[in-house]
């Protein structure tokens, strides 16, 4: 058989090969995204996602959606533009969460014994579903950037609140007021993470009283729009085949 002959001899065989390519492609794609997105996440949001006592209503809410909309924007472009598949954002966050859970369970808990209720990752699926469905329904990157990315930023805090609320119940601890998350951070010793590097509750949103989470979420949503634009160009660059020589 020469290189110019078809590798398959029937339609059924072609379908079988196509599905095999799908399964291998999905497997490889999932783990490539898992590894690369996970490294990106650890380098950019790092401790904000590692510890419950970093998950505050100002910086965690602001930083996490902004730094994590990157890969979903790029992968969405690649999958939609080349395959009309509207699950780029969802596969990114599921791959990331898969890697994060392995890390948190086997490293943080299994290796160094931090309780999982202190080191769980943030939930990201609601925002990803919104990004994907907006792209599917609109077919427009501009609309997805403005509406989808805004939804991604806005839904992050409420999406995580069911897990976070129990950790913000107040406790009187040896004469001081602390949340349960604060006590977790104090009890479970992190030799290399002194308290002063914890970037929480910093900023100047004091005129909003206790209602700073919505303001932070709106700012995060706005920045997510901009970052979506930038990273969709990364997807555009990766989705080309310019580096393959034409024969």
């Amino acid at each position: 058989m020469s290189a110019l002959n078809s590798a398959v001899r029937s339609h059924a065989e072609a379908v079988q090969v196509s599905r095999t390519v799908d399964y291998i492609g999905l497997f490889v794609f999932f783990f490539v995204v898992c590894g690369s997105y996970h490294i990106h996440a650890m380098l950019t949001m790092g401790d904000w996602d590692f510890w419950a006592d970093w998950k505050d209503r100002r910086l965690w809410v602001t930083v996490t959606p902004i730094v994590l909309i990157t890969f979903p924007a790029a992968v969405q472009y690649f999958l939609w533009e080349r395959f009309r598949q509207p699950w780029g954002a969802t596969v990114c966050v599921l791959a990331l969460l898969f890697g994060e859970w392995i890390n948190r369970y086997f490293n943080f808990w299994g290796w160094t014994y931090f309780p999982v209720n202190f080191v769980f990752p943030a939930i990201l699926t609601p925002g990803a579903i919104l990004l994907d469905t907006v792209l599917l329904l609109s077919g427009s990157y501009l609309f997805t950037a403005i509406i989808g990315a805004m939804g991604w930023g806005l839904i992050f805090y409420p999406g995580n609140w069911p897990i976070m609320a129990p950790l913000h119940v107040p406790v009187e601890y040896n004469g001081m007021l602390m949340s349960i998350a604060d006590i977790q951070g104090y009890n479970y010793v992190r030799t290399g993470t002194p308290e002063y590097i914890r970037m929480v509750e910093k900023g100047t949103l004091r005129t909003f009283g206790k209602d700073v989470a919505p303001v932070s979420a709106f700012f995060s949503a706005f920045m997510s729009i901009l970052i979506y634009f930038m990273w969709h160009f990364v997807g555009r660059w990766f989705a080309t085949v310019r580096f393959i020589k034409q024969s």
Binding site: D53, K55, D56, R57, P126, I155, P158, G159, W161, P162, A165, P166, H168, V169, P170, M176, L177, M178, S179, A181, D182, R198, V200, E201, K202, K210
Partner: peptide, 20 residues
């Protein structure tokens, strides 16, 4: 998300921010 958030607020009506 709306249901989960309102359920959490109902179950934990008193919460405080992280202390810093």
């Amino acid at each position: 998300v709306i249901f989960a958030m309102s359920a959490a607020n109902g179950k934990y009506p008193i919460t405080i921010p992280l202390q810093a």
